[in-house]
Amino acid sequence: MRKRTRYTDEPLGELVVTKDFLPRPEELVLKEENVKITISLNKSSVDFFKKKAREHHTSYQKMIRRLIDWYASQQQKSA
């Protein structure tokens, strides 16, 4: 059983306003052009992504795609 939190009327201390860091709704609509490819990967690599995907309730293909996208964006920044 969880311990109940009891709130009091104590002063909160010094408050700091945080800049809005969330993207605008328009930025959340991802309409990127995808290209289908065929690729051969090591069985151990695919098994790794499948296991992690199950743990995080997502698709292993999506994880691999995001990894490649992240890598490409990092390389473009450094170029």
Rank of each mutant, 00 (worst) to 15 (best):
K36D: 08
R4G: 02
K51I: 04
R66E: 12
A72S: 07
S73G: 02
I39N: 02
F21A: 12
E32D: 10
T18G: 00
P11K: 07
V29W: 00
V17Q: 08
L30Y: 12
Q75H: 11
Y7P: 04
L41D: 05
M1G: 11
L67R: 11
G13K: 03
L30R: 14
E27N: 07
W70A: 13
A72G: 06
E33I: 09
E14W: 00
L28T: 06
N34K: 15
M63F: 02
R4N: 08
N42R: 14
V46W: 00
D9L: 05
S78M: 12
V17N: 03
D47Y: 02
P23N: 03
V35P: 01
K52P: 04
W70C: 05
Q75A: 11
R2N: 12
E26H: 06
D47C: 03
W70H: 12
R4D: 07
L67H: 09
S73I: 12
L28H: 02
R24G: 09
S44L: 08
V17K: 11
N34Q: 14
R2H: 10
L15V: 08
I39L: 15
L41Q: 03
S44V: 09
S45T: 12
K3Y: 07
L22Y: 12
K50S: 00
T58P: 03
V16W: 03
H57K: 13
H56L: 14
M63A: 00
K36M: 08
I37M: 11
K31I: 07
A53Y: 06
P25V: 03
V17A: 09
R54E: 14
Y7S: 12
F48H: 08
R2Q: 10
V29P: 01
R2T: 10
Y71R: 13
I37E: 04
P23F: 05
L28K: 10
K50A: 03
V17P: 01
E26V: 07
K51M: 10
K62A: 13
H57Q: 14
R54C: 02
L41E: 05
Y71W: 11
T8L: 08
Q74K: 12
H56S: 13
R4P: 02
V35W: 00
S44C: 02
R65G: 01
L67V: 08
D9S: 10
L15G: 05
T18Y: 09
Q75S: 06
S44I: 10
L22F: 12
D20C: 04
V46N: 02
L22M: 13
R65N: 14
E26G: 08
P25R: 05
E32F: 11
L15A: 11
A72R: 11
D9M: 03
K36L: 09
